[in-house]
């Protein structure tokens, strides 16, 4: 079972839900931190030494002796990563998404590719949890290829919990696309509802099944609940607005360890999502 924890709005409690959910699964589980612009799951786990694997994308290099300045590459690239000015090609590697299209359309075969590093995948072990984190290099603005690389570490048959990046743009979409079920974490406030609505529209478009977790229950109003009722979206967990949870989080500690009264809530959530159920992979 692959479960992605996402939300339209940032700061709703995705990491809290993802970490504590993974902790209550009673067999080996993979925890993927796909919030590659600011991975933070490791702060909550006592993981052993990490294995770091650099990740790059292929970016074009033009051989000026072969290029005749026709501009086909420039017309093809919608990201303006390669332009031809005064019949001379100019490459902007930081704009390149690594599709390789320029290479294909170049009539002179003047383009080859080199690797440009964008980040690193970090793998470590914390008890039953295999933690896989993507970490984008400073100054790099291209999350999806790194997220895809993190997801390559999904093992079919092993329960997987994914901490998704916030929002509803490419990084979130790439992250949740492979999930069996998406958990949308929200808070019962007007902001929470607004961004939940965007997230719901996104995952519906993707055709994924999804449920809602309401965090900080007790603040705000009842509009998130009314919306979910109207739309027929199940609310599978309500986490009360408990100051101790925020304090636990701010210390980098785990709710299910520090506040055992919440353990059963996360257990129920895991069961409801089908984590730790079914045949175990050998």
């Amino acid at each position: 079972m692959i479960v992605a924890i996402a939300s339209g709005k940032g700061g709703t409690g995705k990491t809290t839900v993802a970490v504590n959910l993974a902790l209550v699964v009673r067999r080996p589980v993979r925890l993927l931190d796909c919030d590659v612009e600011e991975p933070n799951v490791h702060l909550f786990l006592d993981a052993g030494p990490a294995v770091n694997e650099p990740v790059g994308i292929l970016v074009p290099v033009v051989d000026p002796t072969l290029c005749d300045g026709c501009g086909e590459c420039s017309r093809f690239c919608r990201y303006h990563a390669i332009v031809v000015l005064k019949e001379r090609p100019l490459v902007f590697p930081e704009m390149c998404h690594g599709c390789g299209g320029c290479l294909q359309v170049c009539p002179q075969k003047a383009i080859h590719e080199v690797v440009r590093r964008i980040g690193v995948v970090r793998t470590s072990q914390a008890g039953r949890i295999s933690l896989v984190q993507g970490s984008l290099d400073v100054g790099v603005a291209l999350a999806p290829p790194l997220i895809r690389e993190v997801q390559q570490r999904i093992q079919p048959g092993t329960d997987t919990v994914i901490d998704a990046p916030p929002g509803t743009s490419c990084p979130m979409i790439v992250t949740v696309r492979r999930a069996d079920v998406i958990v949308l974490v929200t808070e019962p406030t007007p902001f929470g509802l607004h961004d939940l609505t965007l997230a719901v529209e996104t995952v519906r478009e993707l055709g994924r099944s999804f449920v809602v977790v309401v965090n900080r229950e007790g603040v705000g109003d009842d509009r998130v609940h009314r919306y979910c009722r109207q739309e027929g979206i199940p609310i599978v967990l309500e986490i009360p607005d408990d100051r101790r949870i925020a304090e636990t989080y701010s210390r980098g500690e785990r709710v299910v360890d520090r506040l055992p009264e919440y353990r059963s809530l996360f257990r129920q959530l895991a069961e409801r999502l089908g984590l730790g159920i079914g045949p175990e992979k050998e």
């Binding site: 990201y79 303006h80 332009v83 000015l85 005064k86 902007f92 704009m95």
Partner: peptide, 13 residues
């Protein structure tokens, strides 16, 4: 979304 400056430079060129 991105590359406005590069595209504009191409236009001016």
């Amino acid at each position: 979304a991105q590359g406005a400056g590069i595209q504009a430079a191409e236009t001016v060129s």
